[in-house]
Design a protein around this nucleic acid. Structure first.
Lengths: 199, 199
DNA sequence: TTAAAAAATTTAACACTGTTAAGTAAATGA
DNA sequence: TCATTTACTTAACAGTGTTAAATTTTTTAA
């Protein structure tokens, strides 16, 4: 019976509509704005029918996560295919990774557990700059006697901070590395950057 | 009147108790478990009196954030004071930063917006390994003809990933850098790691 | 000591959240 | 046309942050 097919097609369509509606809501108002009732509103149904398509809210997030990983993989593959030399490929792929994160900000957030709201005000908190100031000073000392421009110090600082914070974040949400591997990554990264500062 | 002082002291104490109770709840059940009513339960009051001490839930989070930054700064200073050479100081400080993140995991999470719950299941999702696989292959190619051990490749991969993910996270929650600075950090980090892989 | 004023604390309520069970309307099959 | 299944909605529960009103306790003044 063809009507069965039609119904199945419609079901698949609403399943997809739910994801699209969710992403739309998140893009408009952030992850806090996402609720079952708003999704239902968007697809012109009431909340309970969403549970016919996804067992709960978490399942929707998981499906968006999956979508994100597929999209990211596609971008990485495309970036790789544009070059022949592995070094060039690698550079292009990480740049593609970077671009994906901001082009599909909301997907990246749910994929890797990056929150967004609470820390907006933390910027205005003077205490939040204390760690940076402390480390900044030591970087300057390390560069002596040829202290670079503010921009150069900034780049050093953020390179340090990025690799450490990145490794911490990855371990917190994913915690899949051994302690030895982590320390190895840490030590090589830190000493590498320190060497590059020394010249 | 000395009784005024006593009352003020008591008020300051409950203000502190609210923070302690909050942190206790979060440490026991994660950030999702934190609610005004649970805090009230913990300090043996009802929910509305919390609003006499903090204007809303966000203010409590902000105060915990502040506490976190102060504690981190203290740790960094202590690490610095243990050495004389700037290079040694810097290394010790970043290691202290690392240790703080895991010793005070909950504080670090609220300070830098690192989520924790949703991505536990994402690990089991095969799609989540596609980006890693793609990049892993290119790293191997880059190491040819002397491909290292799995551990060595892992370290390279995570160094890459950490610096990129870290820079992305920092920009998403804090977004305080210019596009040029970001690209500079990115490029120098990537080319630096690639150089170190080549030998 | 007692009455009035002030402060401290609780109860009740509102609007929201995710989720489930029961009820109702619509489409389908015989 | 009638019975059954499917589709969908309404109502409800337990929880959330937050506010206003009511109530209890404490302090002040006579």
């Amino acid at each position: 019976m063809a009507s069965k097919d039609r119904i199945l097609r419609l079901k698949e369509e609403t399943r997809c509509n739910i994801l699209d509606a969710s992403l739309k809501i998140v893009k408009e108002g952030g992850w806090d704005a996402l609720s079952m009732r708003k999704i239902a509103d968007e697809i012109e149904y009431t909340a309970p029918i969403i549970y016919e398509y996804y067992s709960n809210k978490g399942a929707i997030l998981l499906e968006l996560t999956r979508k994100g990983f597929l999209l990211l993989a596609k971008d990485l593959q495309a970036a790789k295919d544009k070059h022949r030399l592995p070094a060039k490929q690698l550079e292009a792929m990480w740049l593609a990774y970077w671009n994906f994160a901001f082009a599909e900000k909301e997907l990246y957030q749910v994929m890797y557990g990056v929150e967004t709201s609470c820390c907006e005000m933390a910027k205005k908190m003077p205490e939040s700059e204390m760690p940076m100031d402390l480390i900044w000073d030591v970087i300057v000392e390390l560069m002596l006697p040829h202290v670079g421009t503010e921009e150069e110090i900034c780049i050093k600082y953020y390179t340090f901070w990025s690799v450490i914070h990145g490794l911490i974040s990855i371990n917190m949400v994913n915690r899949g590395n051994t302690a030895e591997t982590n320390h190895e990554v840490l030590k090589t990264a830190i000493s590498g950057i320190i060497r590059s500062i020394k010249g």
